[in-house]
Design a protein around this nucleic acid. Structure first.
Length: 862
RNA sequence: GCCGGAGUGGUGGAAUGGUAGACACGCUUGACUCAAAAUCAAGUGCACUCCCGUGCGUGUCGGUUCGAGUCCGACCUCCGGCACCA
């Protein structure tokens, strides 16, 4: 065949990408653009240098929505950038003895190239690189705004510390056996002074405002509610007998207070040393505390860790009964939740029950459900019931007693009702090089001094070594030494950098506005925010999305922006997975069925394999790169296939076999339209307005207008897989029409075909934009489909003329009737009853009831 | 353990409470070809079948309804999140 006689996707895609680029088609909408705004945002990637299928899925979804909204007449902001700080660049620097900055820039270039290959309509004029000084300047400035307003604090926190590498490790760098990922040496928990954003101050608002995020997936809202973990209870004081020491405890079950048989303190409790100072038990207690703190803190925090404790020798006085209650130290009490001390009620708490059983402490029941007695009740009992052994509150339903006891305690001045959150303050310090430097200076005279605005940004120094040992910033000969901005004396710079989640907590603002001399300009923020549609992976449901919401609320409170929530509508796309076969005996993965024995159940060596569907990863080797698909089949095929693979919020299993189906379809689209461009009739509207069409012509127009309606609805509902199926149906219907009738050249046929070809180009535009523009040009249009208006379905044309009515007898389909769309109900009912086939299934019985569903079915009940 | 979500042909998947399996992959048959690829046409849930049909069928068991993949209850399995949170 001639080159022009086949679907040459390479030439088409290259040519159109060049034309889009030359025309600056995806430029940012101008400031005075009168169109309604639409801010579409994809979660920006870490620039690893390799685009993977998850990116393809995310950014293709985004491009469909952005192109659709543009064609619908919106001014669309569709930016892209790089979440470029982070460990991989630093690890690469250690490995290759280079610097993270050039390495990162190379990766960015490479990924930018791969994204361009997909033909995505990004507004590159708003590109952002979080590791560039013109970005992290403002990350620092925002930190100082937060600092000045009291949203930043400094305190101790436990970190993973590799004794060999002399550095802090992220949780995922600590192996399951508690060793360092890089050097295999032991990792310990170490306390370090760290910077925190005070997210807990916003816990209640972060929780409350979830109710307003009605366009978010319920799953994400639930996950955030659990993460914030609000619980209501009572915090009250216990006095230690024969001393003036007082402990405060928090409980959500103050109704069980009469069941307390011991108290338990966290080993880290600050009053513990005072409590045991002069007691004979002191040495035992100290030994126990050392034992607990030496153990792996992750293991200690797991629910199935064994419960251990030691008696302190001290007693507290029960505030209601006056009874002496022994005070223990227990490993299962955590210092960082509540007050670090608990009242233990073994009869009504599983943990306390396990502990009391082990150490032979009494377990009296004080809440008894109907039909049980305090003696017969199986313990521990967590549910509701009536108060027992509870003094003046005996017999009350426990929910009521909860309120009465709390009120009584408040009246006596013992304590008060409070709220506790699981959410912690956000530790933002990282003892790492490749992150945003924290703009703080420590001066012996002036203390902690923020870097003045005119000295920002605090730049990352380049005179550093990447050895894998210690924080490189601390090894720079120049970085730490600085004059105090207040008194001018020699001072020391903070060497910690920020968690990369800080960078991504405000990038959506920087996309909307990037003046040279400020973080953002208020007018542009007011124009674009909130983000109308945000799309990314479910793995960011809690951390990133909570941090970004927190930042937005603080910035609102500081008067810097006018919205309290950043993302109006959220969509979480599913992972892209691929099957692989694990051969346990050989300890290796097989990634292609052809590598296996003929039965598919064994390796060529005879070892059994287990089929698993897993996220694409280098370690398994089941990675399929979008670039390879684009080279073999084209970007349009890659884009359509990743959408067609399944519902976008669900996990999708990649199957190479499916790609050819999409490619065949696009080839059929090409064959339907491009070689027939000569049949195109620019004046098809006039011809169709006056022509009398036959049944086949009307049927094709009907299918076309039905497809327009389906596609619009599907795109708005993120039903991209069914949208493509609808386009396939349209092409399936059009192909025989074009083949059978177009050659004769009748004007009406050409007009029907012209409407189809032109509209098909527009409908295809968000999905396969290169081929769409090729068809658009071949039908005599200037420019790109991106600049054209989305088609509108004519309901009169889409309406079905004849209907198929299903006739059921007792709910089973027995016959089908073809009727005119306007046929009256009585006619249809009569026809259904008259049907011979229906009669034969009625066994001569008379209908008890006849149900008629307009336009759909008749059900005869006998 | 708690909180979410999902179970439909050989495969990916589709179905406002109203014809279950759209669309696609794969497979079968045919056309074209010396042949193959590509393309086109027909078929393809399972079982029985006088090839007209009939029965069964959406993880399991029950329920609501004229009618349930869809709604309700219980259970099973898988996936995700959280987990000594007092």
């Amino acid at each position: 065949m001639e080159p022009t006689q086949r679907y040459d996707f390479r030439a088409i895609e290259r040519a159109w990408q060049q034309r889009w680029h030359d025309a600056d088609l995806f430029a940012l909408p101008p400031v005075d653009d009168p169109r309604e705004k639409f801010y579409y945002l994809d979660m920006f990637p870490y620039p690893s240098g390799n685009l993977h299928m998850g990116h393809l899925r995310n950014y293709t979804i985004g491009d469909v929505v952005a192109r659709y909204q543009t064609m619908r007449g919106r001014a669309v902001l569709h930016p892209m950038g790089w979440d470029a700080f982070g460990l991989p660049a630093e690890n690469a620097a250690i490995k290759h003895h280079t610097h993270p900055d050039p390495w990162t820039r190379t990766c960015i270039q490479e990924m930018h190239r791969q994204l361009d290959m997909l033909g995505i309509s990004f507004n590159w004029d708003r590109e952002v690189n979080t590791s560039a000084p013109d970005y992290y300047h403002w990350t620092q400035w925002l930190f100082l705004q937060f600092y000045a307003a009291g949203h930043v604090t400094r305190s101790d926190a436990l970190v993973n510390w590799c004794t060999s590498c002399q550095t802090v490790l992220a949780n995922e760098q600590v192996m399951a056996d508690g060793t360092c990922e890089r050097c295999d040496q032991e990792v310990i928990k170490k306390r370090l002074e760290q910077w925190f954003y005070k997210t807990t101050d916003y816990a209640q608002r972060l929780l409350d405002d979830l109710d307003g995020l009605t366009e978010w997936p319920e799953q994400v809202r639930t996950m955030q509610r659990n993460w914030i973990g609000r619980s209501e209870g009572v915090e009250f004081a216990w006095h230690v007998a024969e001393s003036d020491i007082t402990f405060r405890v928090f409980t959500t079950r103050v109704d069980t207070v009469f069941g307390v048989t011991y108290m338990a303190l966290a080993p880290e409790h600050p009053l513990l040393e005072t409590l045991i100072a002069d007691r004979p038990e002191a040495d035992d207690v100290r030994a126990f505390v050392r034992h607990v703190l030496a153990a792996d803190q992750f293991a200690r925090a797991s629910a199935d860790a064994p419960k251990e404790g030691v008696f302190t020798g001290a007693y507290a006085t029960h505030p209601l009964t006056g009874a002496p209650v022994p005070i223990w130290v227990a490993n299962y009490v955590m210092m960082d939740y509540g007050t670090g001390a608990i009242m233990a009620v073994p009869a009504h708490d599983e943990r306390d029950f396990a502990f009391a059983t082990q150490y032979n402490l009494p377990i009296p029941a004080v809440i008894v459900p109907e039909g049980e007695t305090a003696e017969s009740l199986a313990l521990p009992y967590i549910g509701d019931g009536f108060q027992a052994n509870s003094g003046q509150f005996d017999g009350l339903p426990n929910q009521e007693a909860m309120v009465r006891i709390a009120e009584w305690m408040e009246g006596e001045g013992l304590g008060e009702r409070t709220v506790n959150f699981r959410l912690r303050d956000w530790c933002l310090s990282r003892q790492r090089y490749w992150g945003c430097p924290i703009p703080i200076i420590y001066c012996e005279q002036c203390g902690t001094v923020p870097v003045p605005d005119d000295q920002l940004p605090v730049r990352l120094p380049t005179d550093v070594e990447f050895t894998g040992h210690e924080n490189p910033l601390a090894t720079s000969p120049t970085f730490q030494h600085v004059d105090c901005p207040r008194c001018g004396a020699a001072a020391r710079r903070e060497t910690d950098t920020m968690d990369t989640f800080v960078d991504s907590s405000w990038y959506f603002l920087r996309f909307a506005s990037q003046p040279p001399d400020a973080a953002f300009a208020r007018a542009e923020i007011d124009r674009w925010l909130p983000v109308d549609q945000y799309v990314g992976g479910i793995e960011h449901a809690t951390m990133h999305l909570i941090y970004a919401r927190y930042f937005t609320k603080v910035l609102y409170d500081l008067g810097l922006i006018g919205v309290t929530e950043p993302f109006a509508r959220l969509f979480t796309q599913g992972m892209v997975t691929k099957a692989a076969w694990w051969a346990a005996a050989e300890k290796r993965w097989y990634t292609e069925p052809e590598q296996l024995a003929a039965d598919g159940l064994h390796t060529p060596g005879g070892a059994p394999v287990e089929r698993q569907v897993a996220k694409m990863s280098k370690s398994i080797g089941n990675v399929v790169a979008p670039e390879g698909i684009c080279e073999a089949y084209g970007a349009d095929t890659g884009r359509c296939y990743i959408l067609f693979i399944g519902p976008p919020n669900a996990e999708a299993e990649w199957q190479d076999d499916g790609v050819v189906g999409i490619h065949r379809w696009l080839t059929r689209v090409w064959r339907l339209t491009l070689p027939r461009a000569a049949s195109y009739l620019p004046a098809w509207r006039e011809v169709l307005a006056s022509a009398k069409l036959d049944a086949e012509q009307r049927a094709l127009r009907q299918k076309l207008h039905q497809t327009i309606a389906r596609l619009s609805a599907d795109i708005e509902d993120f039903g991209f897989n069914t949208a493509i199926a609808a386009l396939m149906e349209l092409v399936n219907a059009a192909a025989p029409f074009a083949a059978d009738r177009l050659a004769a050249g009748a004007e009406a046929d050409r007009a029907v075909f012209s409407e189809l070809a032109e509209t098909l180009a527009l409908l295809l535009s968000p999905f396969a934009p290169h081929l769409a523009d090729e068809i658009w040009a071949a039908t005599g249009h200037e420019g790109s489909t991106y600049q054209a208006a989305w088609p509108v379905s004519d309901p009169a044309l889409a309406r079905r003329e004849r209907l198929t009515i299903v006739v059921q007898v007792n709910g089973k389909v027995r016959d089908k009737l073809e009727v005119d769309a306007g046929a009256p109900e009585e006619t249809i009912r009569a026809a259904a009853l008259a049907s011979e086939r229906v009669q034969s299934f009625m066994d001569g019985k008379t209908p008890r009831k006849v149900v008629y569903v307009p336009g759909r079915l008749v059900n005869i009940v006998v």
